[in-house]
Amino acid sequence: MKVFPDDLFYNREHAWVRVEGELATIGITDYAQEKLGEILAIELPEVDSYVERDEPFGTIESAKGVFELISPVSGAIVSVNEDILDDIGIVNSDPHDTGWMITLEMSDSEELDDLLDSREYHDFVLKEAESD
């Protein structure tokens, strides 16, 4: 089973969050990228646009289909990872680090309380994998 970093929070839609002050950097987990297979295209929001928790912040296409990326927290986008727009393969090869997608300024840091820690997310994907 994959290792999910302890310093990240996770939602049940397989997105992770790294928190630094009021800033939240978001990407998808290693489990998600493996499930999706080779990622072919990605669409991300523009800087200054606003993203709601549990709503899509982008869209991704793999050979298997189109998937909406669901934000774990709400906030205004302050940066988008241009590197993955140039080389989408980074999301497959390094999803928890250089494959990050967006950074936003959180509007309500209490939303983090509803997210899973690495242990809880590990148990969640274990259960999901068992049901397949």
């Binding site: 839609e13 549990d54 899509p56 050979a63 298997k64 289909g65 189109v66 998937f67 909406e68 669901i70």
Partner: peptide
């Protein structure tokens, strides 16, 4: 053809596509 799409005598007869979000899928 992609995996699990339908072929008849190696010719494709049905092609499908999917959207997934928040635990729901449309195929």
């Amino acid at each position: 053809p992609s995996r699990y799409e339908l072929l008849v005598k190696k010719k494709k007869i049905c092609g499908s596509a999917q959207l997934r979000s928040k635990g729901v899928f449309l195929q």
